Amino acid sequence: MNSLVVIFMILGCALAQQRPQAQPLGKVISILKQLYDLSPDGSFQWSYDSENGISASEQGSVKQIGNEAGVVVQGQYSYPSPTGENVVIQYIADENGFQPQGSVLPTPPPIPEAILRSLAYNAAHPEEDDQHQKPGPGKRY
């Protein structure tokens, strides 16, 4: 039994010393065009195009949002899909969050007709909502 333990320990040490071969890196993709500009007022713009069809650009500026300064940006990126289609995503990021647009992004299903009628009815009859907001004398929810 002890000899088996010693054999497995020696085998384990021998295997632990073997190092896996480094995997070769993929093809290096060259940047064909790259621009970057930062202004003293905090505004900026950058862009790049690569040889594999990927490109991106963005412009941003400082904006006063409430009591704080924030950055508002808009930009786009594009890449070739596996099917060969050129995918383009445009976006705005501001006080309302990140807002992307593009033909490949999922969209919510349409609102059912019954829900639309209900919303229209509620908007046309706000007084019914007011009656249910405040309990009358001696009434509880």
Results as ranks from 00 to 15, higher is better:
N2K: 09
L4G: 01
V5Y: 03
V5L: 08
V6P: 00
I7D: 07
F8M: 11
F8W: 08
I10T: 08
I10G: 02
L11T: 07
G12E: 03
G12H: 09
C13Y: 11
A14T: 08
A14K: 02
A16S: 12
P20L: 02
P20S: 09
Q21Y: 09
Q21M: 14
Q23H: 08
P24Y: 03
P24A: 11
G26S: 12
K27Y: 05
I29E: 01
I29F: 01
I31S: 02
L32H: 06
Q34W: 00
Q34T: 02
Y36W: 07
P40H: 06
D41H: 02
Q45L: 08
W46G: 01
S47R: 05
S50W: 07
I54L: 12
A56T: 07
S57Q: 13
S57A: 13
E58G: 04
G60R: 05
V62F: 04
K63N: 01
Q64R: 10
I65E: 10
E68W: 05
A69M: 11
G70M: 07
V71T: 12
V73G: 06
Q74P: 02
Q74T: 10
G75S: 10
Q76E: 14
Q76L: 05
Y77F: 14
S78V: 02
S81H: 11
N86Y: 14
V88M: 12
A93Y: 07
N96S: 13
F98H: 12
P100S: 10
V104L: 02
P106A: 02
T107F: 00
P108H: 04
P109D: 03
P110W: 06
P112T: 10
P112I: 02
E113W: 13
R117V: 08
A120Q: 06
N122T: 03
A123Y: 02
A124C: 10
A124H: 04
A124K: 09
H125D: 04
P126L: 08
D130T: 13
D130H: 07
Q131W: 12
P137G: 10
P137V: 15
G138E: 15
